[in-house]
Design a protein around this nucleic acid. Structure first.
Lengths: 136, 136, 136, 136
DNA sequence: GTGGTCTAGACCACA
DNA sequence: GTGGTCTAGACCACA
């Protein structure tokens, strides 16, 4: 359903997985107590090595977002939603801030940046809606 | 004068340097024929290992943006401005698009993203102006 | 100098490494700011795969015991000593408690256990002293 | 009656079951010819998957401690008592030795270890007596 | 030289 | 079927 990974976007693959899981928990697409897709499923779906998925799950577990039930799978912790919500905002804001800073330093004015953002939001918004529809 | 590097922003340091040089050329802050700061100066200014700067200069040279004058230093090529202008737009747009896509996929609406962008532009704009003034 | 690993003692190898590093920090054999042996050195010294060492270092980093200096190595955090001291006691006590519980449940009396402990301490004490001397 | 399992004590669950059966035989809590509790009973009592119990029984059978009577259940072999007694001592001593070695290597003195052992024996001893009473 | 990331694949414990 | 651990080895960024 919902995870995707871009090997060339500068963020480590395992970190992209970590972020998307947190986002899904914040969004309640993934609910406390719910089983994550298995390592094997995820690694196939993302076309990524199982160990890379495992690395992401280790990180999530060490942050107390997920919990392992031996032989059953990995579930979302009861108290993960709040933590994920708080992190979601700062993760997104940090990344946006980095991109915007770069644009301003590159000599664009704030207005030029706003225009660029609007263009992109319009085109992206359409794409993402259609992706969501596809997966329905 | 104008370069800065953020080791934790997901983009390799040498790539950040490459981008900033291209941006400066596109902006005419750095003009064809002009000498770049030396590897030593740059590495000190950025608090970065000289090899990392060298790596960036190799990249710029292989893309035909800069040229080495033996015993003198590294200069911007005559025909680099156009190429840098074209690249600037796509580099910034790609990075913004990646950040915006992530925000939309994380469940924010286009309007929420626009609000976030505005907040950040306002705060960043102030900071960057004051940085520019400092370096004047 | 000081790390050793027993692949067959029921505790995962990476966890044994984690514990020994914490113990060394608690003991001040390893001091804040000091570089750990490199992954390659440790993996050779312990006759263990480098990835296993890396796994241990990830754990230590996620607990805030160590910190990575890119290209330089891994150092002990300034505030790690207290945390390691507190953990050392509980790690040792937990493990001892498990072994002692097992002995009592197996039908030994408290006195029999004490005798067994004394025998072992006497023989072990000698061995460990001689190991320390060897490495001097 | 007497078995208990700790999923987080570093020893595989099936191995904990094997050990406790051997201990019970050594103690004559479980006598030659006597039927063990059924796989279902044991797995319920220990809150463990039946396959894990089965795995333990396979191990016991392959060591000649128990024997299967088709349609009746699993009984203790006639000659198991001596073997279990011999093993009990070495199992307990090995595990204690490992825990004590770790404590000494972690920098505790033999006296500090003895004190720790005494504290624990006192508190454990009480607990285990009360458990035994409960199950009477 | 340093650690970080990723792939490929083995074997184990548990359900 | 599930995840956990470990090995072996590649390639990258940075010092």
């Amino acid at each position: 359903m919902f995870f995707s990974v871009d090997p060339s976007n500068g963020v480590a693959i395992y970190a992209q997985i970590v972020r998307q899981v947190k986002f899904a928990v914040a969004e309640k697409t993934l609910r406390p107590g719910q089983l994550l897709p298995s390592v094997r499923q995820l690694s196939q779906q993302l076309a990524v090595n199982p160990n890379t998925v495992t690395r992401a799950l280790q990180e999530l577990q060490s942050e107390g977002i997920t919990e392992t039930l031996r032989g059953r799978g990995v579930i979302v912790c009861q108290d993960a939603v709040d933590r994920c919500r708080r992190q979601r905002h700062s993760i997104l804001a940090d990344r946006l801030a980095a991109a915007l800073t770069e644009a301003l330093q590159a000599g664009l004015s704030a207005d030029e940046v706003r225009t660029l953002v609007d263009q992109q939001l319009n085109s992206l918004d359409g794409q993402i809606e259609s992706i969501s529809e596809l997966s329905t």
